[in-house]
Amino acid sequence: MTFTQVTTDLLNGFYENLLIFFVTLLGAIPFGLIITFGSMSRFKPVKWLVKTFIWIIRGTPLMLQLFAVLYVPGLVFGIPMQSRMTAALIAFIINYAAYFSEIFRGGIESIPKGQYEAGQVLGMTKTQVFFKVVLLQVIKRIVPPMGNEIITLVKDTSLARVIAIAELIMAAERYAGRGYIWPLFYTGAFFLIFNGLLSLLFHFIEKKLDYYKG
C-alpha cells in the first residue's frame, strides 16, 4: 500500500463528493429561489405550506432525510429508488434549497422599500425592478452567508456514506478497517484544499462587488 495508491483511492472517493457538491449547487439555487418566492407569497396557504416545508427540512437531520429519500418511495409508493446517488442528490438539493431560500429571503427583504418605489415611479415593471435594480444588490448582500453555507455543503457531502455512497471518508474508512488510520486524517487535506479554493473565489466575488456601497 503506497501513498500514491491511497491518494488515487481517496481521489476516486472525492469525485463522488464533488459530484454531489456541484449538482446540489446547481439544483438548490433555482429551487431555493422558488421556495423564497413561496415563503414571501401574499397568498397565505402557499406561504404557510412553504414555511412548514422549511421547518421540517431545517428541523430534521440531513442524515435522516437521506434515509427518507432512499426508502420512502419504495416503502410507501412501491416505486423503489433506482440509484443511491439519485436519492442522495434529491435529499441534498431539497435540504440546501431550504437553507438557501432563507438566505435569499433575508437578502431580498433587506433591500430598502425606496429602491422598489424609485423603480416604480420611473415606470419600470415589477420584473424590471427585480432584475435591474434589486437583484445585484441582493447578490452583494448574500455572498458572505452563501459562502458559509456552500463551504458547509462541501463537508456535508460526506454524509452520503450513510446510504452507502463510496465517497471520500468511506474510502478512507476501508483502510481504517484494515488497520491503517492515517488515510482517514489525510481526507482532511482534500476538504481543506477545496474549501480554500472556494474561499478565494468568494473573496474575489466580494471584491468584484466592492465597487459600490449600499
Binding site: P112, G114, Q115, E117, A118, Q120, V121, G123, T125, V133, L136, Q137, K140, Y212, K213, G214
Partner: peptide, 20 residues
C-alpha cells in the same frame, strides 16, 4: 398602469438612487 405612472415624476426625500 405604466402610462399613468409616467404622467408624474417623483423626487424622494431619501434620493433612492440605484447604488450599483
Amino acid at each position: 398602469r405604466r402610462e399613468n405612472q409616467l404622467c408624474t415624476g417623483l423626487v424622494f426625500q431619501s434620493f433612492n438612487l440605484f447604488p450599483q
